[in-house]
Structures are given as C-alpha cells and as structure tokens.
Design a protein around this nucleic acid. Sequence first.
DNA 1: GCTCTGACGAAGT
DNA 2: AACTTCGCCAGAG
Length: 106
Amino acid sequence: MVAVTDPESEFARAVWLIVGSIPPGRVCAYGRVAALAGYPRHARHVGKLMGRLPAGSSLPWFRVVRADGHLPVGARQQQHLEREGIQITGGRVSLRHYGWPDPGNL
DNA sequence: GCTCTGACGAAGT
DNA sequence: AACTTCGCCAGAG
C-alpha cells in the first residue's frame, strides 16, 4: 500500500498531471486539484506534495492557490503569478482567475 | 492507539 | 469583510 502523500502514489501522479496542465494566467485551488485527481477532501495532501517538489521542477506549483485566494505573506509565488498577468490585490489572488478546467463554473 | 500538525476549505460570528 | 471553529485525512512522534 503506497501512501497518497508518497510521490509514487496514484494520487501524486494525478496531482502532477493536473497541476502541469493548468494554463498560464489561470489558477486552481488545492481542493479542486484533489477532487480532479479523484480524492475529494484531500486538499491538504496536495499542499504536502507541492512542498516536496524538487527545486528545479518544471511544474507550475505557483498556480495552485487557496480557495479563498489568500497567499502566504511575502510569498515569491506572487511574483510568478503577476508575471503571468494574474491580478493580486490585498495579498490575495483575484477570484476571476479561477475556473479551471471549466471556466464556466465560476 | 492517541495527539498534534498541516502550501486546506466551508460555515458560522 | 476579518476572524474563529470545526471538519477533513495521513504522517510523525
């Protein structure tokens, strides 16, 4: 039995696949990624996996944000997002950038 | 086993 | 609109 937080787990594979397919200019919540991966209510484990990513990873981890749009104070994540045209005001991502993979369910 | 913790989330105040 | 509480699931001690 491989733990879901293990990089070799199906959960981890699914999460990476999903995160890697988030297009520039869009963001996705942890909980949403978990649900898409087939594991609802596992938002925190997505976070745990992001934390384990190697420094040189090509995965756009910075496009995964909290559901309420709030970012950690002083996060370099903010610079990456703004560079892609994602608007950040008052330390949180504008909700209009959500809606991946279905822009219609905002 | 039990408690604490966490790149979280939703509901209540 | 800011803050608190509670629910969530696994891993660590």
